[in-house]
Design a protein around this nucleic acid. Structure first.
Lengths: 198, 198
DNA sequence: TGAAAATCTTTACACTGTAAAGTTGCATAG
DNA sequence: CTATGCAACTTTACAGTGTAAAGATTTTCA
């Protein structure tokens, strides 16, 4: 528990926090391990005591991001009763909201650097949780509607749509509040309304 | 028109071709300007006679990619008559097909590196064409169906869904032919079928 | 207390993007 | 036909990157 020059105490967390900070206000492209180390006040190679390499740091960052994504979804959906259409839309709002408020992190999570690491178990499970939320809501929605659509297809449709909105918004290719589109929340609501579960 | 050591002749195109090649079989992350130059047989700084910087090369690559994307959409939609549902689905098939067959290029086109350059005029216009195809097909589809849905919303929905499918497939997060999902073509078809234009 | 293990630093290397200055060859004006 | 200028290239240089290897320091534990 020392703050002496050597043995930082909890360098691992300090590095992750620094990485997160740099990621937020400099983007994923200019995120360097040396800057992270410098911001944490240690030498350039100190991180290698806690992480295999740079990708491992990014993977951990992404894993935390997936958790937050799922949390955001739950938070937005919670006010609305299960089996309701509003519940499903809430998940969508939470998803897109997270993406828009954490653009760099979202890009990291779904970027090629991290995708290459999908063999990392914890990364996969964290990423899967968001999808599970979506799928179970869709399943409920379908069974409520009393039809026998393929739930996997329906869940994939919902996820694809929500994920597509997110990335296109982030890239500035879809502009909420412009070009005939309503503001974000309304936009998401209307887009969700275009999915038919029948 | 010389192939002498100096004055390569058409170095610009040679660089773009080398870049494309390296991109295809090494991914966007490990694409370096020096490798490109070396593959073209010139010195490390030769590219700077033809491109402002590395980003300019990537932007040009992405621009070409957007053109090919639109072409792929047209090609897949062409067999089907205008105003038909099959026409719209064809565009979707062309979109996803391009993404799956050119993963690295697609990631570059919609990645953060290129997104930062959306001020580049030619890049924007090239990227817009794919969207125009989608939108006009949606507009036709809606007017045929005889309802007055908001066309902008509907087009955004179609695009979001198709783009979402593409990126999730590329990331391996959606797996056609597994986990209860049909093969790609069928999958796209069914997902398109879940969009209601009413 | 001593030895091993963990955590950190220093040094080193290959690689990156790109600025600056020098070299070569082509085009065109005299 | 020559000279001059310009475009396309090379060489050199530098700061920044990821990370391997070896050395220093502190903690832990037998």
């Amino acid at each position: 528990m020392a703050k002496n020059s050597y043995h930082h105490g909890n360098l691992r967390e300090a590095l992750l926090q620094a990485a997160r900070e740099l990621l937020v206000d400099s983007g994923v492209d200019s995120l360097s391990l040396r800057k992270i180390a410098k911001m944490a006040g240690v030498s350039a190679t100190a991180p290698y005591s806690h992480f295999r390499d740079k990708q491992a740091v990014l993977a951990e960052l992404a894993t935390a991001g997936f958790d937050e994504l799922a949390n955001s979804m739950e938070q937005h959906a919670q006010p609305h009763p299960d089996y309701s259409e509003a519940h499903l839309e809430g998940l969508a709002q939470g998803y897109v909201n997270f993406a828009v408020q954490n653009p760099a992190l979202f890009q990291l999570m779904f970027g090629p650097t991290v995708s290459d690491l999908l063999s990392s178990a914890s990364l996969v499970t964290a990423g899967t949780r968001a999808y599970q939320l979506m799928e179970s809501a869709v399943v409920q929605r379908i069974s409520t509607a009393g039809n026998q659509s393929d739930t996997h297809i329906a869940a994939a449709a919902a996820w694809s749509m929500v994920h597509g909105i997110s990335t296109l918004l982030l890239d500035g290719r879809l502009q909420a509040g412009r070009a005939g589109l309503p503001e974000q929340q309304q936009l998401i609501s209307e887009l969700c309304g275009m999915l038919k579960f029948a």
